Amino acid sequence: MKVVIVEDELAASENLIFHLKSLNPDIEVIQVLDTVKSAISFFSQPQEVVLAFMDIHLADGISFEIFDKVRIDIPVIFTTAYNQYALKAFKVNSIDYLLKPIDETELSKALEQFKVQSAKEPLFDDKMSGLLQLVKNQTKTYKSTYLVSHRDQLVPLKTVNIAYLYIDMGVVKAVSKDNRSFVMDDKLEDIENELSPDQFFRANRQFIVQKESIDHVNHYFNGKLIVNTVPISKERIVVSKAKAMEFKKWLDS
């Protein structure tokens, strides 16, 4: 069975290929496409592939935009790290959607469904327009800069430069990657909702950590984790057993 993968993250595409080969060695991945543009070019030509896996967010846009330019007459399984997209409401030609990181059991179920539903109608333009509109409506804009006080100055602190945030004696502080500390005016709960969940994780009631600031993670007793950041936090950052799996999936995505 010949398939094509539309995915811009090398680790994600390699992980998917590994699971596909593990489930069925006869599956042949013809090509991995990493942009909307390359996918349009690929599907503009006659192809032998019978199934496509598409990540929703690509380097140059959203994969639903591909359907604005070219007609795709094969089933599509969408992959996404964002479970807010209600893709199940639009299963006309798509088989299923899979949440990242890809679980082999869920992938197996999707492939079985593909075998059962061999004869399917192509994706209609209005359905893809609906999907595209859904993503546009539900894609949230996250905070990129906070205006913070530092000594006698107001300093624009970019979120990409925040290593972690924490509560210190009732006061929320942000520590930058160059180890400067800034007092924040908002509550940690409000800040959490303003930051991109791709980059920031609420480790516990006291800490929010930024992915790129994490140096390593230690196993702790009772299934807990200790997060080690750069710069080093004075307080121990502990992830509970209940959140440990979610944290590891987030860090691995």
Rank of each mutant, 00 (worst) to 15 (best):
I95D: 02
Y97I: 05
Y97R: 04
Y97M: 05
L98Y: 07
L98H: 11
L99Y: 10
L99E: 10
L99C: 11
L99M: 12
P101N: 14
P101T: 15
P101I: 14
T105E: 15
E106Y: 12
E106W: 04
E106G: 02
L107Y: 10
L107D: 04
L107T: 08
S108E: 10
S108I: 01
K109V: 03
L111S: 05
E112H: 12
E112L: 06
V116L: 04
V116G: 03
V116D: 00
S118N: 15
A119P: 04
K120D: 06
E121D: 12
E121Y: 01
E121H: 07
P122M: 09
P122D: 12
L123S: 09
L123Y: 08
L123C: 11
L123R: 04
F124N: 14
F124Y: 11
F124H: 14
D125E: 11
D125I: 11
D126K: 14
K127Q: 11
M128T: 13
L131I: 14
L132Y: 15
L132W: 09
Q133P: 01
Q133H: 13
L134V: 05
L134C: 09
L134A: 11
L134D: 10
V135W: 14
V135G: 08
K136V: 03
N137A: 09
Q138P: 02
T139G: 07
T139S: 14
Y142V: 01
Y142P: 06
Y142F: 15
K143C: 04
K143V: 00
S144K: 15
T145A: 01
Y146M: 03
L147W: 05
V148M: 10
S149H: 07
D152L: 02
D152C: 00
D152F: 08
Q153Y: 13
Q153C: 08
L154T: 09
L154H: 05
V155E: 08
P156E: 07
P156V: 09
L157H: 13
K158D: 00
K158H: 12
T159V: 15
T159K: 06
T159R: 03
V160P: 12
V160L: 11
V160F: 13
V160E: 15
I162N: 01
I162P: 00
I162H: 02
A163M: 03
A163I: 05
A163T: 04
Y164W: 06
Y164E: 07
Y164L: 03
L165C: 13
I167G: 01
D168K: 14
D168S: 10
M169H: 13
G170I: 06
G170M: 03
G170Q: 07
V171D: 00
V172M: 04
K173H: 02
V175P: 05
V175G: 02
V175S: 06
D178G: 05
N179E: 11
N179S: 12
R180K: 15
R180S: 09
S181C: 13
S181G: 01
S181E: 10
F182V: 04
F182P: 05
F182G: 07
V183D: 08
V183Q: 13
M184P: 02
M184W: 01
M184L: 12
D185T: 05
D185I: 00
L188F: 03
L188Y: 04
L188E: 00
L188P: 01
L188G: 00
D190L: 03
D190W: 05
D190F: 06
I191E: 08
E192A: 14
E194W: 00
E194H: 00
L195I: 08
L195W: 06
P197I: 04
D198N: 14
F200H: 04
F201Y: 15
F201R: 10
